[in-house]
């Protein structure tokens, strides 16, 4: 329960800061905080695999792409002229529509859970440890059968880094 409150508070606060911040760089970094808090929520829901994937894919790979684009465009500061108002009402309308869909989805989920007799807050059925077992199996396979593949991945990352640095570095 404490974990839920803490993680939820962090997620909401970080998400608000992402939207309200004027510096794109801060927004991207705060989005990572928000994703990490979501991952903590998944752990509370006894879904460790979803939590790990949330960290690796969203907070890791996708955010690196975001950062890369921000740095590539040199967009250190949101231009005054292209604020929300300047873009016209369309993005706002799209955002509002998406929010309504999400709210409807949430309401539907809560109602369904209540009808099934569960509590709408806190952990569901007692954890029996099977979910954790699947992560353990996954880790076991990764470090036994696929340990060489795992190590080669590190070589792949070195190559990607060296290649990116050598291509991006400015002529001295």
């Amino acid at each position: 329960m404490l974990l839920f409150l803490l993680a939820a508070a962090v997620a909401v606060a970080a998400s608000l800061a992402v939207v309200l911040g004027r510096n794109p760089m801060h927004s991207v970094l705060l989005l990572i905080v928000s994703f990490a808090a979501l991952a903590a929520l998944y752990i509370g829901l006894d879904a460790p695999f979803a939590a790990v994937v949330q960290i690796i894919i969203y907070a890791g790979a996708i955010m690196v792409l975001f950062l890369f684009v921000v740095m590539l465009l040199n967009a250190h500061r949101e231009d005054e002229g292209t604020g929300g108002a300047a873009l016209g009402g369309r993005p706002l309308a799209a955002g509002a529509a998406l929010a309504i869909v999400l709210a409807a989805e949430l309401a539907w989920a809560v109602l369904r859970t209540r009808r099934a007799g569960g509590s709408w807050m806190g952990a569901g059925p007692e954890s029996d440890g099977t979910a954790l077992q699947s992560v353990r199996t996954l880790g076991g396979v990764l470090y036994s059968e696929y340990s060489l593949a795992f190590e080669v991945t590190s070589l792949l990352i070195i190559v990607a880094m060296v290649g990116a640095v050598v291509l991006a570095r400015r002529e001295s």
């Binding site: 792949l156 190559v159 990607a160 060296v162 290649g163 050598v166 291509l167």
Partner: peptide, 8 residues
Amino acid sequence: VFSLALYA
């Protein structure tokens, strides 16, 4: 691994 190195 070798493709990435060669692209660079």
